[in-house]
């Protein structure tokens, strides 16, 4: 009986379906916990499903390559999902027309501080080149950040984790920081959270008010586009 079970296990672990199924189940479980905990940023479902899956791979000795043979069927959807971001961005264009003066200053400032600030600090503290290229796009939404990281010679999977950690930091520390700085306008709070902490900051902004959330999702989209254009240029200029 035990031998048969282990035979089945050996067979299943080799099947690409295993990585695919495990990913969806881990995410569903993490998402349930996240909802139960009132969508607290620290309970972020991506972070915890990544941690859980990493532990499973380590415990079972399945290599990442084998896991990815199945999980890639989810991964390929990132491209079309990035293109799909055009629809919410199109909806938000009315806000751009009303707020363009503020956005024109606040967004580039936030984008440059987030990316070049992180690169300068990590570089000064001795991080290597691949790490610097991986941390540079950490403030923007994951699909865009991973694309930029790849273009800069970074490690897209490291970027994915850094992006999520940034989102959690921004969502947890951002609102108290903004209150301490006496930034009370919902539009300003939304832009700050969306530009610096992408989707996770945007989810937090929607907890404050719909207006804050709408400005956050707009800022997230524009910051992503802006970073995708500015950062590779800055990278080339800096050599």
């Amino acid at each position: 009986m035990i031998a048969e079970l282990s035979d089945i296990w050996v067979y299943l672990a080799r099947d690409p379906l295993f990585g695919l199924t495990l990913t969806v189940l881990a995410y569903l479980a993490a998402d349930q916990v996240y909802r139960r905990l009132g969508m607290h940023p620290l309970a972020n479902p991506v972070l915890w499903s990544v941690v859980a899956l990493a532990l499973v791979l380590r415990g079972t000795g399945i290599s990442y390559e084998r896991y990815f043979e199945g999980a890639q069927f989810i991964h390929v959807l990132l491209g079309p999902a990035t293109v799909a971001l055009a629809v919410p961005l199109y909806r938000a264009l009315g806000t751009v027309r009303r707020q363009w003066r503020g956005l024109l200053v606040a967004l580039p400032a936030s984008v440059l501080v987030a990316s070049l600030g992180a690169v300068a600090l990590a570089g000064a503290l001795g991080a290597g080149e691949a790490t610097l290229a991986s941390v540079a796009p950490k403030a923007v939404t994951t699909p865009i950040a991973m694309g930029i990281s790849e273009r800069l010679g970074g490690l897209p999977s490291l970027t994915a984790v850094l992006v999520i950690l940034t989102g959690i930091l921004g969502a947890v520390l951002g609102p108290p920081l903004l209150s301490w700085l006496k930034v009370r306008d919902p539009r300003a709070r939304g832009v700050a959270l969306g530009a610096a902490a992408h989707g996770i900051g945007t989810a937090r902004a929607f907890n404050e008010s719909p207006e804050t959330g709408a400005h956050a999702s707009l800022a997230m989209g524009l910051a992503g586009v802006l970073t995708a254009i500015l950062l590779p240029l800055a990278w080339t200029l800096m050599g």
Binding site: G19, T23, V24, A26, Y27, D31, P45, V46, S49, V50, L53, A54, L57, R58, Y64, Y67, F68, A71, Q72, I74, H75, L77, L78, A81, T142, P143, M146, L155, P156, S157, L158, A160, V161, V163, I164, G199
Partner: peptide, 14 residues
């Protein structure tokens, strides 16, 4: 959308 980041994120084990 969040689910789609997981496969790449797990790559951090490498």
């Amino acid at each position: 959308l969040s689910l789609l980041f997981v496969p790449a994120g797990v790559g951090v084990v490498t």
